[in-house]
Design a protein around this nucleic acid. Structure first.
Lengths: 153, 153
DNA sequence: CTTGACCTTGGATTAAACTCTAAGGTTTAT
DNA sequence: ATAAACCTTAGAGTTTAATCCAAGGTCAAG
C-alpha cells in the first residue's frame, strides 16, 4: 500500500498529477485510510505505470482512458466490441512503431556515417537521412472528451 | 511550390498551425510570392512531414526543434556536439520503441487470446497482459522553451 | 503538545500547442 | 467589377495536462 506521496515519488511525478488522474477517471486509489488518505495497491501502481508508458509514446489521456476502459469492461459481454477497440489501438501503436523505427534508423545512420570522430559534419541532416521515407502514417486523432466517467469526488 | 492552404490540406492540418510553426522557428517557407504569400517547396514539405512524424510519436515541439537544429548545424564544425545530440535523441527513440513494442505485444495477445468471437471477455485486461513489464523507461522531459530562434516576422 | 512534514479540498494559474477573430489585401470566376 | 475564396497581420481564446495555492486536518518525533 502506497500513500500518494510514496506512489508519486516512485514514478517521479507530482502528487497533484495523481489527484488529477483520479479526477479524470484514469486512476483511483483502491482504498482510503481511516482519515481519508488515498491508499494505492500494487494493481494501482501497475495501472499508473501503464498510463505513464502510454503517455510517453504519444497517447493522450483520452486515448489512455479508452484503453483502460477495456479493463473495466471485462466479464461476460461485448467481447467483439472490446476486440474492435483493441485492434484500433493496435493499428495506432503499429503506425507509431513504424514511425519510430524510421527515426531510429535515420538517427543511427546519422550517428554512424557522419560523425565518426572530429570529421566535417557536412551531411549531418536528419532530413537527408529521412529522405527515403514515404509512408504518411501520421496518426489522426479522434478527440472525444475523456471526462465521460462521472467521477466528481 | 505550395501555398499555405495547399500544404496544410496535404497534411490535414490548419494553415494556422503552419504559421504557428513558423513563428516558433520550426518551419519557414523557402520563399514568398510578390504579394507576400508563403511559398513552400518540396524540402519544406519534407521538413513538415518530419515534424508531424516526430509529434505523432510523442516528441514535443521543443524536442523537434532540437532535432531539426542538427540540420541547421551542419558543415564543418561541432561534429562531436552534433553526434551527442543525435545519440541522446536516439536513446529516447529507442526507449519509446521498447515501450511501443511492449504495447503492441500486449494488445496482440489481448486481441488473439481473449476475443475469438462472442465469448466472455473475462480476461480482457490490458493490465493483465502488461503485467510482466518492468523497465521504467518513462521518458523524463527536459523543457527549455523552444522559442529560442528570434524569428518574429 | 507543538513543530513540521505529510495529507485533504476546491479553485486559480501555467505551459504547450494550437485555433480563432478582426481588419484588411489578393486572385479567380462570372 | 465585384463576390467568393483565398491570403496577410496581431492578438485573443481554447484545450490538454498539469501545477500551484490557500485553508485546514493528521501524524511521528522531540
Amino acid at each position: 500500500m502506497y500513500r500518494i506521496g510514496e506512489l508519486s515519488a516512485l514514478y517521479d511525478i507530482k502528487a497533484d498529477t495523481l489527484r488529477f488522474y483520479e479526477k479524470h477517471g484514469l486512476l483511483s486509489p483502491s482504498s482510503r485510510s481511516g482519515s481519508g488518505y488515498r491508499l494505492y495497491n500494487q494493481d494501482d501502481s501497475e495501472r499508473l505505470k501503464f498510463i505513464l508508458r502510454a503517455k510517453a509514446v504519444g497517447f493522450s489521456l483520452n486515448d489512455i482512458a479508452d484503453l483502460l476502459s477495456i479493463e473495466v469492461d471485462k466479464s461476460n459481454r461485448a467481447c467483439a466490441e472490446v476486440k474492435g477497440l483493441v485492434d484500433t489501438k493496435l493499428e495506432q501503436v503499429e503506425a507509431k512503431l513504424a514511425e519510430l523505427q524510421h527515426f531510429a534508423t535515420s538517427l543511427k545512420s546519422l550517428s554512424n556515417t557522419c560523425c565518426g570522430g572530429s570529421d566535417s559534419a557536412e551531411h549531418c541532416s536528419i532530413l537527408e537521412a529521412l529522405e527515403s521515407s514515404d509512408q504518411h502514417i501520421i496518426a489522426k486523432k479522434e478527440h472525444h472528451h475523456f471526462s465521460h466517467s462521472g467521477h466528481k469526488d
